[in-house]
Design a protein around this nucleic acid. Structure first.
Length: 201
DNA sequence: TATGCGATATTCT
DNA sequence: GAATATCGCATAG
């Protein structure tokens, strides 16, 4: 029973550079329509993956698994990892360029009861705090791989519903290569950002 | 806070 | 055939 609705963002509104996009997405709204239920959350943490970046899945070229990462900017790249988690990325470069932004955490706004069912937890703070949790809370799976987030699909990015706080920058989480590059962006002080307290400040 | 392990698709050798 | 992966949870300290 939510009043304020986000506006669908258009592809041409997106910054062209991947790092700029990662920063731009903080505070925006991730929306997934599930029949009658709408799941929505405020993106509070992202990471950029670039060309020539050994930590990026595109580093060794295009394969069947990472092909969505090479789509024109604004498409979903969803993959399965560690035997039990999906991750949601947004492709960034022009078609043929393997860059993208990983969505790592969100603040649940709408459809919270459904998210609790999907996740099997009741603590709102833990619903989408971390990339695997975010995907589970938003019912993201391989069927959404390659979807255009800026067309008219059920999964899309909307405008910000609240002012965005200060944005922090740090190294990325959970990678072993290029682990020193400052390519993680997050809303400072948000309790919905993943990692320990130090990683939210 | 800090390990430690599960469970599997994809890629590498 | 083997290693690795953009993690999360349980359990111990």
């Amino acid at each position: 029973m939510n009043k304020k609705q986000p506006r669908r963002l258009k592809r041409r509104e997106l910054p062209k550079a991947t790092i700029a996009l990662a920063r731009y997405l903080i505070g925006k709204t991730l929306v997934h329509k599930l029949g009658r239920v709408t799941l929505a959350g405020r993106i509070v943490e992202t990471e950029a993956y670039l060309v020539g970046d050994a930590a990026a899945h595109s580093f060794r070229g295009e394969t069947p698994r990472n092909r969505s990462l090479f789509l024109d900017r604004g498409h979903a790249y969803v993959y399965f990892i560690y035997g039990n988690h999906f991750m949601l990325n947004i492709s960034s470069g022009p078609h043929g360029t393997g860059e993208g932004v990983l969505l790592r955490a969100a603040e649940p706004l709408q459809g919270i009861e459904r998210m609790k069912l999907l996740r099997g937890v009741s603590n709102v703070r833990d619903l989408a705090r971390g990339p695997g949790r975010l995907a589970e809370a938003f019912a993201i799976d391989e069927k959404l791989d390659g979807v255009d987030l800026f067309g008219d699909s059920v999964l899309w990015i909307g405008s910000a519903l609240k002012p965005v706080g200060k944005i922090g920058v740090s190294v990325r989480i959970g990678i072993t290569k290029e682990a020193h590059r400052p390519l993680r962006f997050y809303e400072r002080g948000s309790v919905f950002v993943s990692g320990t307290k130090a990683l939210r400040g």
